[in-house]
Design a protein around this nucleic acid. Structure first.
Ligand SMILES: [Zn+2]
Ligand SMILES: [Zn+2]
Ligand SMILES: [Zn+2]
Ligand SMILES: [Zn+2]
Lengths: 160, 160
DNA sequence: ATCAGGCATGTTATAACATATCAACCCCGA
DNA sequence: TCGGGGTTGATATGTTATAACATGCCTGAT
C-alpha cells in the first residue's frame, strides 16, 4: 500500500536488496535466474520506471547478451511469471516488482511525464468491482489496476 | 455498477437504444457521427465484446467502408474521445460503452474465454489506490481497471 | 557410454498493433 | 471566390509481440 518510486532513497541498497530477494526466491522455487534474466531484472530495478521490451533489448544487445526480440520477451516472461516484474498494460512496458513478498495483486501509479512507476496493492475481491463480479457470476483471475497521472516532480515541471 | 454483457437481453433493442443515445449525444456536443464512425459503433455494439482494430477493419473493408488501418483507428479514436467506446488495455482491443450517461471512470470484467466484456464503474479517488496516490502526492488523471477471468458461460464450457 | 528428456538459448521470419504524412475533397462562411 | 476546418484516401513506416525450428547443455535412466 505504501508506494515507492517517487521518493528519494538509497538506490544502491534498494537494488541489492531486491536482487538478493530475487535470488532467494528463485532458489526456493527451483527457478533458474540465468545471467540474461538476472541482468534484465537489474536493468529494470536500476531504472525504477517502465521500460519497453525493445528498450531492454537495446541494453542487452549493447552488453552482448542477445540481439533478437525473443531474448527480451523470454526474459520478461520469466520475470513476470516468477513475480519479479510486472507488465504495465497501459504502456505496453515492464517494471520491476518492488513488493518484496509472495504473490500479490499489484496496482500502479504511473507518471506520464517521466514513466516512473509506484507499486501499491489492491484487494481484488473487495470493493465495487468485486461486488459487480459476484453479482454477474464472474470469476476473477487477475486484475489490472493502473492509475495514470503526474508524479510530484512532474507536476512542478515547466514541461507539464 | 451493475454489469451488462454476460446476461441475456433483447439485443436488437439494446443496440437501437445505444445508437440513438449516441446520435443524441453527438448532436448535443456538435460531433459528427459519420457513416464510418456510426458503422464502427454498430459493429462494436453488435458484438458486445472486445474487438481488435484489425478485426473491425476487416468488417469495414468487407462493407466497402475503407481498407487501410487509419480508417479503423480514426473511427475508434473518435468513438473513444466521444465516450462512446473504450479501449481495453490488457487486450489492445476496443469495446462499445454500455454506460449511457456522461463522462465516467469505467471498469471492466473481461472473459478470457469469449472476450465478452461487462462494464462497471469505479470510484477513482476512493479506496486504497486513492489513498496511496494522496500519500505520494500523485495526481490521478485516468484509471485503468480491468479484471480478467471467466464469465458464467465459459466457466461451464468444456474448453475452459 | 549412450541416449532421451527438459530447459535455456540462438536465429529467422512474421504476425499484430499503431501512427506519420501528404493529397484530395467537401462544406460553409467571409 | 476564396480560405479554413474537418473528413477521408492512400502510402509508408514504426512499434510491439510471437511462431517456428535449430542448437547446445545438463542430467538421469538404461
Ligand atoms: Zn509486485
Ligand atoms: Zn514524473
Ligand atoms: Zn463506458
Ligand atoms: Zn466467456
Amino acid at each position: 500500500m505504501s508506494p515507492r518510486g517517487f521518493s528519494c532513497h538509497d538506490h544502491a541498497t534498494c537494488m541489492s536488496d531486491m536482487l538478493e530477494r530475487a535470488e532467494t526466491r528463485c532458489r526456493d522455487k527451483g527457478l533458474n535466474l540465468t545471467p540474461v534474466r538476472r541482468r534484465t531484472l537489474e536493468i529494470l530495478l536500476d531504472e525504477h520506471r517502465a521500460l519497453g521490451a525493445y528498450d531492454l533489448l537495446a541494453q542487452l544487445a549493447a552488453e552482448g547478451l542477445g540481439s533478437q526480440p525473443p531474448v527480451a520477451y523470454r526474459a520478461l516472461d520469466f520475470l513476470v511469471n516468477a513475480g519479479l516484474a510486472h507488465k504495465i498494460e497501459a504502456l505496453n512496458a515492464y517494471v520491476a516488482c518492488t513488493h518484496s513478498g509472495a504473490d500479490h495483486a499489484p496496482a500502479f501509479l504511473i507518471c506520464r511525464g517521466c514513466r516512473a512507476v509506484a507499486e501499491a496493492s489492491t484487494a481484488p475481491a473487495s470493493g465495487r468491482l468485486g461486488d459487480a463480479a459476484r453479482a454477474a457470476g464472474f470469476q476473477i483471475e487477475r486484475t489490472v489496476v493502473e492509475a495514470q497521472g503526474l508524479c510530484p516532480d512532474c507536476q512542478q515541471d515547466p514541461a507539464a
